[in-house]
Amino acid sequence: MEVVDPQQLGMFTEGELMSVGMDTFIHRIDSTEVIYQPRRKRAKLIGKYLMGDLLGEGSYGKVKEVLDSETLCRRAVKILKKKKLRRIPNGEANVKKEIQLLRRLRHKNVIQLVDVLYNEEKQKMYMVMEYCVCGMQEMLDSVPEKRFPVCQAHGYFCQLIDGLEYLHSQGIVHKDIKPGNLLLTTGGTLKISDLGVAEALHPFAADDTCRTSQGSPAFQPPEIANGLDTFSGFKVDIWSAGVTLYNITTGLYPFEGDNIYKLFENIGKGSYAIPGDCGPPLSDLLKGMLEYEPAKRFSIRQIRQHSWFRKKHPPAEAPVPIPPSPDTKDRWRSMTVVPYLEDLHGADEDEDLFDIEDDIIYTQDFTVPGQVPEEEASHNGQRRGLPKAVCMNGTEAAQLSTKSRAEGRAPNPARKACSASSKIRRLSACKQQ
């Protein structure tokens, strides 16, 4: 084909351009004929944790799935940006308080904090938690009735009371019990989460009196709706648990309003109706937990002794299953770290194939690490110290990083047969305790 000078094309009309061969290198194709290559998922490591896909996002930050490269346990990490926390009232204080509380709590029905990582340079905090497959609110939203069968609701409620009793025994008032803060594992274990607005009572406090509340409006008791200066913290949790039980068994809320002012007005009056299909035992329990006067409201001991709580409820309806993943529609909620794991395991070791967030990740503290002497050669063979940054567990980050890069360049065919977990650990520049 004859090559045409581009400067001469402006002298031709459209018809003349076609005659000189423009149609031979300008093609129009339908979008259905285009085959897009999927974007390669680059592996990203935060300390010893391999990052997966997004699980959810809230006002405080994002939650992603991660894999512990040492234990191969599935975890969830809450990623918090200090810049964003400053824009939220009491944001930083709530996060630090939640970390302090979770560090000393150990119960099967309370979410466990596994690790805390802090990135000084990017001003990011990573709260590594045990993995929960789904939230209770997500399960309720997945069915038209917006409720659980009585047998399933009873099982979840009993676990909620177990976890709540443990928190109260530790002198902690949750203040925000609701389905949105109750998570579930694949085995059906309920976990109380989000202790950001919780309050730890003084060890020598005479009672459970509280003065502040930041919980969700629909789950607040009349004493808070009416603006009382002080109130019983434990009875606030009992009320919120009662509203939660009402919601998961009926699909409704005892109090509603077009806006928060109308909602608080209705809560302050204390008038509500219980659907007739709840039955006398459940209705009596709800009335005891939603008692207007805090002094007359049920205690956890009274809830445990109630006939509806103690009764064994046979399954009359099919239980609400864990819904498919909202993004991938995966009904099994498979591990989202698998594509990243395959990338590390299947590809040659190259620095361009993975990302390490930083050479140094500070753990379990908000301060910069200490310094240790770096050896410097002298005339008599002895070495003197220069400062060298280290990880919180004493690992020399720069030395590990250099060693990792040197190993990656060394030709050794046997290394390709290593397991995925050992490869992740070798790529991680800074081991965590």
Rank of each mutant, 00 (worst) to 15 (best):
E65F: 08
Q399L: 10
E357S: 13
A389S: 11
G91K: 01
M127P: 04
A205C: 09
K403S: 05
Q159R: 06
A410I: 13
L400V: 11
L54P: 08
P179V: 02
E138W: 08
T185N: 02
S404T: 09
Q302L: 12
S401R: 07
A218C: 05
Q37R: 10
Q123T: 09
I46S: 04
A205H: 10
E33Y: 08
W239K: 01
L105G: 03
G408T: 15
D327V: 10
S428K: 02
L344S: 12
P411L: 08
L117V: 03
L113C: 08
P217W: 15
C132L: 04
E33M: 12
W332M: 11
K81W: 03
L50P: 05
E375V: 09
I322E: 07
G10A: 11
I303D: 00
V243H: 00
S428F: 15
C132H: 08
L386T: 14
A414I: 10
L67G: 03
V372A: 12
R405V: 15
R40D: 15
T230L: 04
I322W: 08
E33F: 04
C391E: 14
R405T: 09
E374I: 12
Q112V: 06
I274M: 05
L117T: 04
E293D: 11
C158M: 00
Y36L: 06
V110I: 03
I260T: 10
R106E: 15
T249M: 12
Q302H: 07
G15R: 11
K97L: 04
L290W: 03
R42K: 09
R383D: 12
T212G: 10
T189P: 07
G56E: 07
D176F: 00
F234D: 08
L201S: 04
D194Y: 00
K96Y: 09
L140C: 02
R304Y: 00
Q214C: 05
C134Y: 07
Y118E: 00
E33P: 11
G52L: 11
C430V: 06
V390H: 05
K41H: 12
R425M: 13
L341A: 13
V133E: 03
R415T: 05
L341C: 11
N247D: 04
L140T: 01
V337R: 03
S193R: 00
M18T: 15
T209W: 09
D284I: 07
I29H: 01
D359T: 14
S19W: 11
I267A: 06
G163A: 06
T186S: 07
F309R: 01
V372H: 15
D330G: 09
P413S: 12
D352M: 08
S419H: 15
F264T: 05
E130F: 06
A406P: 08
R106F: 14
I248C: 06
E376F: 10
F219L: 07
V128A: 02
G394K: 14
C418I: 11
D30H: 10
I356W: 15
S404I: 08
T230A: 04
P280M: 06
P221F: 00
T249L: 06
P221L: 01
N109K: 07
D115G: 02
L105C: 13
I424C: 10
K423C: 14
P280A: 05
L183H: 11
P387A: 10
Q170W: 08
V110R: 00
R104K: 10
T212R: 12
V372R: 11
N259H: 15
P179A: 04
L285Y: 00
C418G: 15
T336L: 11
L80S: 02
G187R: 04
L195I: 12
G279N: 14
S31Y: 10
T230F: 05
